[in-house]
């Protein structure tokens, strides 16, 4: 009797997760399979009538695309510099918003507001602010005696501007940290107080370890996001100037839609997927050493 119940339970389990299974097959496996299939062909478009299997040729010739290396390096820049900066920014903001002062709810709303701005509108606003001639930023800086800088149009400034933009719209990550901070048990701090620990020490020996799962989560989400970043670069500066903000996914988009080399775009996507999987795997492995889970001890 017990056994039959268990069998039945397995069936029920599948029924409960059925929506996901359907979605997974339809909107994931099928498109993904299509991508893999085409990456071994020379099809210019999906559904093209004429194509041939070319084996690994696309993967080998990937590097012939003049923008390939540059866009890969740009994306690595965002991953290597953007992820830590944005994550640290989120954490600092969460600590600020965790202050127990009057009116903090209002501050939270204002800090979160940028996250709710549609990306196109964000780009409009940032163009207004960073506009080298009529923007408020340069006007403010000139009061401090600084020369006009072409932030969005400059080869060396565009990437930092995009990272800054990510901090500006980082509200969701801030919320995750805020929730984690609220979950740190009060009694730990009380104990530390009795020991006479300094604020800094409290932060590093209690807060940080306790919220480390959230940090890992945010870092992984941020890493994936930065690997895939595209819309910001497209809308802000069309990836320019001189491909300074041309990200890897932007180049995939270009391969498919502008160069009309769909199969090449698919190979590049699979390359990126492998890269993301590898980096995430390494992050997870490393994290075992640093991330503290309650209940583990």
């Amino acid at each position: 009797m017990m056994k039959s119940l268990r069998k039945y339970d397995t069936l029920l389990f599948f029924l409960f997760i059925m929506p996901w299974i359907i979605g997974f097959i339809t909107f994931f496996l099928i498109p993904f399979g299509t991508s893999v299939f085409y990456s071994f062909t020379d099809a210019k478009l999906p559904g093209a009538v004429e194509y041939e299997f070319v084996g690994l040729s696309n993967f080998i010739h990937m590097i012939d695309d003049p923008i390939f290396m540059k866009s890969l390096l740009n994306t690595m820049y965002f991953v290597v510099f953007g992820v830590p900066i944005v994550t640290a920014g989120m954490l600092v903001l969460a600590l600020l918003l965790n202050f127990n002062v009057r009116g903090i709810a209002l501050f939270r709303t204002f800090y979160y507001l940028p996250t709710l701005v549609p990306i196109v509108a964000t780009v409009i606003i940032w163009r207004l602010v960073f506009n080298s001639e009529f923007g408020i930023l340069n006007a403010g800086l000139s009061l401090l005696g600084m020369a006009k800088t072409d932030w969005i149009g400059g080869e060396h400034t565009i990437k930092p501007v995009i990272i800054l933009l990510q901090v500006w719209i980082s509200g969701s990550g801030v919320l995750i940290f805020l929730a984690a901070l609220k979950n740190v048990p009060m009694h730990l701090y009380e104990a530390a107080d009795i020991d006479g620990a300094s604020r800094l020490r409290r932060f590093f020996s209690i807060t940080l370890p306790m919220i480390s799962p959230s940090i890992l989560f945010v870092i992984i989400i941020q890493t994936m996001y930065n690997f895939q970043m595209f819309t910001e670069a497209l809308l802000l500066s069309k990836g320019g100037p001189n491909y300074a903000a041309y990200t890897f996914v932007y180049n995939i988009y270009k391969s498919a839609f502008t160069d009309l080399k769909f199969s090449m775009a698919m190979s590049q996507s699979i390359f990126l997927f492998a890269l993301i999987a590898l980096v995430t795997f390494v992050l997870m492995k490393l994290s075992n050493r640093f991330v503290y889970y309650e209940g583990e001890k």
Partner: peptide, 25 residues
């Protein structure tokens, strides 16, 4: 079409206004 719409603007926009090396571009 590639020259004009894909690569040209990225490469020449700044050099043709005096920022950066024209020959290299």
């Amino acid at each position: 079409t590639d020259l004009v719409w894909t690569y040209g603007e990225q490469a020449l926009k700044l050099p043709l206004s005096g920022e950066g090396d024209l020959q290299a571009a």
